[in-house]
């Protein structure tokens, strides 16, 4: 195994865990948690096209996810909400289109498995650079706008009256989510990226006593999930996405039952 690849993959996984959990928190509180799933499925189209025509499947995935994001945003603007129907349309539409493209050529079909289920050993230097850039993008945006997004989630009318631009904030959040998702599918796979983003936030909600606490717990849990998942992957040769997400689900169950038992104890 090439040590550089392992190192890069680990680093990317950690960066992804942090930015994924951060974006996940805001997707969850804005009630967009299914958005990540829909975008992940749609970005498969780009990944498949990339393999089919021989260009970078990562860039193909990013581009397709962005297209999906823009379509969803346009539909949402028309109907004033992400409806189940819109999300299902993008999700199923993307997956089926990707499968059709893949079935046209054997090599695409073979590599599609990696995008459906993820692979921790996908990373070269180019991917690492991209991961660092998106990481900084997420960090910068949230450092300056996380409070605006919080207020938009709790008191949208009040936020608007304070001059907070709804469209601007939501659009950037969706763009960032899109880019994080496109990376996520490389490591975790399209089927589980949504859970990878949202699970840390879900667990954070159970543990935190403030919004700042929620962000802290989500990132901590996200990192723990990624590290634990990667260890299982290396030593037991299991698929990374499945082990990372399964670790998260296990933590969630433990936390929720722990809280129930604690309440009964009181």
């Amino acid at each position: 195994m090439d040590l550089n690849v392992v190192q890069n993959s680990l680093l990317i996984a950690l960066l992804l865990a942090i930015e994924g959990s951060l974006v996940g928190v805001f997707l969850l509180v804005r009630r967009y948690s299914l958005l990540a799933d829909a975008l992940a499925h749609f970005s498969l189209v780009g990944a498949a096209l990339g393999v089919f025509f021989g260009f970078s499947s990562l860039l193909g995935g990013v581009f397709a996810a962005l297209t999906g994001g823009v379509i969803l945003e346009a539909l949402r603007y028309k109907e004033n909400a992400f409806t189940d129907a819109n999300l299902a349309l993008i999700s199923a539409g993307g997956l089926s289109l990707a499968l059709i493209i893949a079935s046209l050529r054997g090599e695409v079909w073979q590599s599609l498995g990696q995008y459906l289920f993820g692979s921790i050993l996908f990373a070269g230097e180019k991917e690492l650079i991209w991961a660092v850039i998106t990481f900084l993008g997420v960090l910068l945006f949230l450092m300056f706008y996380s409070r605006h997004l919080l207020l938009l989630s709790v008191d949208p009318a009040g936020a608007k009256s304070q001059g907070i631009k709804v469209r601007f904030n939501e659009f950037f959040l969706i763009i960032l989510a899109t880019i994080v998702v496109s990376f996520g599918i490389q490591a975790v796979g399209a089927l589980l990226t949504g859970a990878f983003l949202v699970l840390p936030a879900l667990i954070g909600i159970e543990l935190a006593r403030s919004f700042t606490g929620l962000i802290f717990w989500a990132v901590t849990v996200g990192l723990f999930m990624a590290v634990a998942g990667i260890i299982f992957t290396f030593f037991l040769n299991l698929p990374p996405g499945a082990t990372i997400v399964a670790t998260g689900v296990l933590i969630y169950i433990l936390v929720v039952s722990g809280k129930k038992l604690g309440k009964r104890g009181n």
Binding site: F144, R147, H148, L151, A159, Q162, I164
Partner: peptide
């Protein structure tokens, strides 16, 4: 958050 305006805030 009531003190926020449209501008970014660190």
């Amino acid at each position: 958050a009531g003190t926020l305006k449209g501008k970014p805030k660190l």
